[in-house]
Design a protein around this nucleic acid. Structure first.
Lengths: 218, 218
DNA sequence: ACAGTACACACTGTATACAGTAGACTGAAG
DNA sequence: CTTCAGTCTACTGTATACAGTGTGTACTGT
């Protein structure tokens, strides 16, 4: 057998994505053992790509390696949701401060489009709303000249907890509207060169009660 | 062969540490190819643990995987030193704010010890000074209740750039003294319940011109 | 001299076999 | 009924063989 299969991606990557999705969605419960051989059988590959995937899942915090006992699904609830959101808020604010004044008219236009896009989301699809919102935030801080900051933010955004939330919350119509208008107000503030106002609204965006929409299952 | 050798650690871990050190110290130049077979031969192991190590090095940003071409040493100079320091400073300040008021008398005592330890360092051993200083900073923010924040800070502290600097700078006597006294002044501020002062001194600590001691080779 | 093609090489991707270890289970002895 | 020892089993750690891919290179034809 060659290097890649029909999907054109290395098997390790495919396994990583599949197992990752299973963990984030909760189909694989916290603490559940991740046995190389079983996963290999499940996806009809050998243990080698499974090992690669597990190593990566471990460094990503989705799996935990216990001594020479085995791999287990990390307990996401321990990585406190509040903690991640607090860090995300703080980092985004820092990045926005650095990005402030660097948005081109084109950037702002693009942001407007992204903000409006939120209204087109299905109010019942948490993942979609979350995704659109994230794209806005990503774009918002992109002009920040500190590459490492953006890199770190990227890892916060893709933190398991974030994706877990996206899968489990039900936004509702008024929340979708709220997201869109908050985002638009941030753009307004940027256009008015009002950093204080922009960060203030950004903080509201990150108010857990608002961003999450609903309660988290755990 | 079994699972572990004389050192008692999995081979993958040993390989990771060795290659990591070679990269950080600059013995393996940026862009240099990291060939599995050669590394395997060099450390007298098979390709399997080498693969594991390389996967981890890649997610750590020390190595880069190009298509199905091969692994290469990441160019550290691209991960701007300034960027990492800026993020480190910002995150540490955030963490210190959260930790403020949570230091027990025992914590403060321990911090005093760590601060004083800097004076015992050899002024020519950059690594030692850096290490002692890092231990202080780590301890300083430890009471921060946000586990994720501390986790993220951990990854910033262990960023290749940080270690590279530690290896390449020459502190000098007056710098060692400066580190110790800065640290002590932070403790003074904490004991006086003066958050503003503590963060102010912390910021000085992170002034690149000060923290680095000397110019960076690149 | 130059372009195009075929080949060889170097490397990763993958599969699989075997060795070692730590907990689980079973049985006997107290 | 409890406790301990011995074995069993399930899993990871490791080595290695083979397949596939992309790049450089030599060779051919013009």
């Amino acid at each position: 057998m060659g290097t890649e299969d029909a999907a054109g991606k290395p098997l390790a990557e495919q396994v990583y994505e599949n197992v990752s999705r299973l963990i984030v969605s909760g189909e694989l419960a916290a603490g559940e053992p991740l046995v190389q051989e079983k996963i290999a059988a499940q996806f009809d590959v050998s243990r080698t790509p499974v090992r690669d995937a597990l190593t990566q899942l471990t460094t990503d915090g989705l799996a935990t390696l216990v001594a020479s006992r085995g791999y287990f699904v990390t307990d996401l609830s321990r990585n406190q949701v509040e903690d991640v959101f607090e860090v995300r808020a703080a980092l985004e604010e820092l990045a926005l401060r650095s990005a402030f004044g660097r948005h081109t008219p084109k950037d702002l236009l693009h942001l407007r489009t992204l903000a409006a896009e939120a209204r087109l989301c299905s109010p019942t699809d948490g993942m979609e709303v979350f995704d659109v919102s994230l794209r806005f935030h990503r774009r918002l801080v992109e002009p920040c000249p500190n590459g490492y900051m953006l890199e770190l933010l990227g890892s916060v955004w893709s933190h398991p907890v974030q994706r877990r939330i996206a899968l489990t919350y039900k936004p509702g119509q008024e929340h979708v509207e709220r997201v869109a208008s908050d985002h638009e107000r941030i753009i307004d503030a940027l256009e008015a060169h009002d950093l204080a106002k922009a960060t203030e609204i950004l903080r509201i965006c990150h108010d857990p009660a608002d961003e999450r929409g609903g309660p988290i299952v755990e």
